[in-house]
Computed example of a mutant assay.
Amino acid sequence: MTVDVPPKRYPEMTDKVALVTGGSTGIGLATAQAFAREGATVIIASRNEKRGKQALSTLMDSGCGSWVECDVTDGREVENLISSILKGYGRIDYAFNNAGSGGKMSPVANMTEDAWSKTINGYLTSVFLCMRHQLPAMLKAGRGVIVNNSSVDGLRGYPLLGGAPYSAAKHEVLGLTRSAALEHAKDGIRITAICPGWVGTPPVENFIRKNAQIGAQIIGQEPISRLGTTDEVANGVLWLCSDAASFMLGSPLVLDGGYMA
């Protein structure tokens, strides 16, 4: 019996090399799977080997990529990640800088310097480090697309108590994205960002299960009356990387169910 394979939306991605940081779960995993469906070779970078290899096994073709251990807040590890990709595959065509982590949430007046630093390093410095090492490889090739994961909270203040450093980091991801995009606008490299609203990732779903009142508040912030799906965000990332978005530069794509409308 033959199995119908859906046509590729972006045939130009076949045999290209796509890096997804934080690709073992949530938005990152959905994006890695989406790249694989388009025929790209996918490199998943994350910190947990078990989850990383489980994620790799879900890709459409087990031979279409690899998992690399990397803490994206460590510049040396990021440098090694990019070096290993270039050594193994010779190129990086697409990079989705998605990985992020933070410190304990608390109001600004009570926040520790350590919690602030962990959040800024986890969500902002990590993006800088990835771009710092991705860009030379793309500049050498004269082509490439970088998509950074920001947030609607990079466009407004965080709506719940304790999220100020996260919002600050996500605002700065957009500033970094726009500035770097202008720096390389004539180099054949496109740099942009995506700003998801509330998405049903494992952490968000766990958070809602633990606190029904806050869960209702979160859903209430979405005019569409539901969370976004990881596949919906992944579809946006792939469009940004595709030739269909060739005039998209610097500005973010907002996928928020009407949150910012």
Score class of each variant (00 low, 15 high):
residue 174 L to F: 11
residue 50 K to S: 14
residue 57 S to P: 02
residue 24 S to M: 04
residue 82 I to P: 01
residue 163 G to Y: 10
residue 139 L to C: 05
residue 156 R to Q: 14
residue 43 I to W: 09
residue 18 A to N: 06
residue 54 Q to D: 15
residue 261 A to H: 10
residue 244 A to L: 12
residue 30 A to M: 06
residue 92 I to R: 09
residue 168 A to V: 12
residue 229 T to A: 08
residue 223 P to A: 05
residue 234 A to R: 05
residue 121 N to G: 04
residue 185 A to R: 13
residue 36 A to H: 07
residue 246 S to G: 07
residue 107 P to M: 11
residue 92 I to W: 08
residue 221 Q to E: 12
residue 164 A to L: 08
residue 160 L to N: 03
residue 175 G to K: 08
residue 216 A to E: 15
residue 258 G to S: 10
residue 90 G to V: 09
residue 227 L to T: 09
residue 180 A to W: 09
residue 227 L to R: 12
residue 77 E to S: 13
residue 240 L to W: 10
residue 95 A to Y: 02
residue 182 L to G: 12
residue 96 F to D: 06
residue 188 G to E: 04
residue 52 G to N: 09
residue 65 G to P: 05
residue 94 Y to K: 03
residue 173 V to T: 11
residue 163 G to V: 02
residue 84 S to V: 03
residue 191 I to S: 11
residue 26 G to D: 08
residue 249 L to E: 09
residue 213 Q to Y: 00
residue 82 I to M: 13
residue 78 V to I: 10
residue 128 F to A: 06
residue 132 R to N: 11
residue 224 I to Y: 03
residue 86 L to E: 15
residue 116 W to H: 07
residue 217 Q to W: 00
residue 69 E to C: 12
residue 192 T to R: 07
residue 237 V to P: 06
residue 251 S to E: 13
residue 18 A to Q: 03
residue 98 N to G: 01
residue 118 K to F: 01
residue 130 C to G: 09
residue 198 W to H: 13
residue 238 L to G: 07
residue 208 I to V: 13
residue 192 T to S: 15
residue 23 G to N: 12
residue 163 G to Q: 10
residue 250 G to W: 02
residue 168 A to T: 15
residue 256 D to Y: 06
residue 18 A to M: 06
residue 19 L to F: 06
residue 11 P to E: 12
residue 237 V to A: 00
residue 12 E to L: 01
residue 37 R to Q: 13
residue 68 V to E: 13
residue 94 Y to L: 03
residue 259 Y to G: 03
residue 225 S to V: 03
residue 8 K to T: 11
residue 27 I to K: 04
residue 75 G to N: 11
residue 202 P to T: 10
residue 165 P to Q: 10
residue 40 A to F: 07
residue 133 H to D: 05
residue 34 A to C: 03
residue 32 A to Y: 04
residue 51 R to K: 14
residue 57 S to N: 11
residue 203 P to L: 07
residue 220 G to C: 02
residue 146 I to M: 10
residue 185 A to E: 11
residue 79 E to P: 00
